[in-house]
Amino acid sequence: MGDVYIVAEQLAGALSDDTFELLAHGKALAGQTGGNLTAVLLGGDPALAGQLGAASKVITVDCGADFNPESYGAALQAVVSADSPQVVMLSNSAMGMDLAASLAAQADLPLAAYCHSIDYAGGFTAVSQLYGGKLDITAQLGDGPCVVTMLAGSASADAGRATGSPPTEAVAAPAVAGKIRFKQLNMPEAGDVDITNKDILVAIGRGIGSKDDIEVAEELAEALNAAVAASRPIIDAGWLPGPGRWANRGLR
């Protein structure tokens, strides 16, 4: 007990920024619990462990090169039930949400989702951002074990970056029924604007009204040497080519 586990996230051969944010959160939290920080690297290339130097230990599980909620979920559950960490931290991402809520429900652990901070003082207190960001909810999770998912951007990824060779432990992947089969990864089509490379963005949403009105935003963007970014409804309506123009990086 006392240990803080973070679940590293890899996609297409690289660790996500969220992973380093989790390491930054985890390092601070382990300082409060007095435990060790362990990173769990599910699937992918075990050599990625070399980038997880902020952790004092890395557990690798060979549960397949590509994310699969069934095999990755079973692997995480096996690690958690064997080690019983005091807290398991995941990113509130497309992968983290699947894993966290499934782990919490199956292992019957308390879970707080959409958190931007977590502290420990005899019990875990997390602050969750709900109702479209209109309210901060302070949630009491007890003394653990518990599960939290952290919002992207809630910690500095750089604070979690450290090279080094933490000791690694390879854990065998548990057998699964194979009810979910990964088929393929689809990379976005290149060619459209990369909004992350622009200093200025002209962002539009539903309020723009109609497809024809986007011209106004495009003229402004051109005058500012900017790019037009948009919220999801604009992309889904096909008014702008997506998903390169999609302005919010997270899901919420």
Partner: peptide
């Protein structure tokens, strides 16, 4: 996939866990 109020995690995985059925979100 989620709601603005699901502090304790998304509904889908909770349903799937109780049904012992596979789940994929997003």
């Amino acid at each position: 996939v989620q709601s603005v109020a699901d502090l304790e995690g998304q509904l889908g995985p909770a349903v799937a866990a109780a049904l012992q059925a596979p789940f994929i979100g997003v």
